[in-house]
Amino acid sequence: MPEARVIPMPGVGDEPPRSRRAGSRVPAKATEPAVPTVPPTPTPTLPPTRTLPPLPADSGEAAPGGAGWEERVAQGLAFLRRRLTGDFEVDEFGYDEDFTDQVYLPALRPLYKSWFRIETFGMHNIPDSGGALVVANHSGTVPMDGLMTSLAVHDDHPAHRRLRLLGADLVFKLPLVGSVARKTGNTLACNADAERLLHSGELVGVYPEGFKGVGKPFADRYKLQRFGRGGFVSAAIRTGVPIIPCSIVGAEEIYPMIGNLKSLARILGIPYLPITPTFPLLGPLGLIPLPSKWLIEFGEPIPTAHLGTSAAEDPMLVFNLTDQVRETIQQSLYSLLMQRGSVFS
């Protein structure tokens, strides 16, 4: 069965990375007969219009021709006033779009563009509207892959969709981290929240490996860990949304974990305490991630609507689907690694 899933992989090359230079990855492009099972809907022809008015910090580097500096000052002041008077909206999960667009995403963009030089593939596999569940591999000691995938979907998808991630309860327990996570649209990884978001047509992202994936030793890089108990599959089945496998290459190398102070971590109540080549050796400097080259690929959607909601009660089916998603991601990780070549290319 794993072999059977390899077939769509050459199809990776048929979609040129949107708005990014594709310099180094030539060989894969030669394969023409990739079958685009998802009809190439008008997505490529759509101009990258934003649903929101161009905002200062947001479009700062992208479209310098648009707003003048006075405009930007005015918008900056308006943002400050909105914060000081509480004049913005949040949804019931605590998602604060104003903060996300004005502060959070602009802060991540330099890291995304210049540091990790992220390229995305297969963005057409994410529907323009309606619920879908993005399932990705987790790595990097610090869950930077979540932040970057959210930004990738927002910036590179023609509909500028928001990826609502499901996080571990530790995330929401921590001061500052927890409240920022909620404000940027993420919520606790539990079936109730996942199904509520999917039902309301949101794009939800999940990392089924959890801490086992993000906190694994460097030697185990790109080896998928156990995929939880398949809760994400039953959430997708119950809401009838497609599962979109997502493979992230590059995050493994940002903080290579060569040691783990397990007993100290237990005392501190955290799942692991990493030692990397630069941390804690260089102190705060060790917090700077290594500038690895990232590739993020969204694979072909796996539909679940035809299974019916009762299928979620069939453990064998859920296990098989979980394995299928896991194998797909693993295979596509290997092919992305081949494509990338050297780590810092």
Partner: peptide, 8 residues
């Protein structure tokens, strides 16, 4: 911190 976003 372990609460779902909304309680039914």
């Amino acid at each position: 911190s372990r609460d779902p976003a909304l309680f039914t």
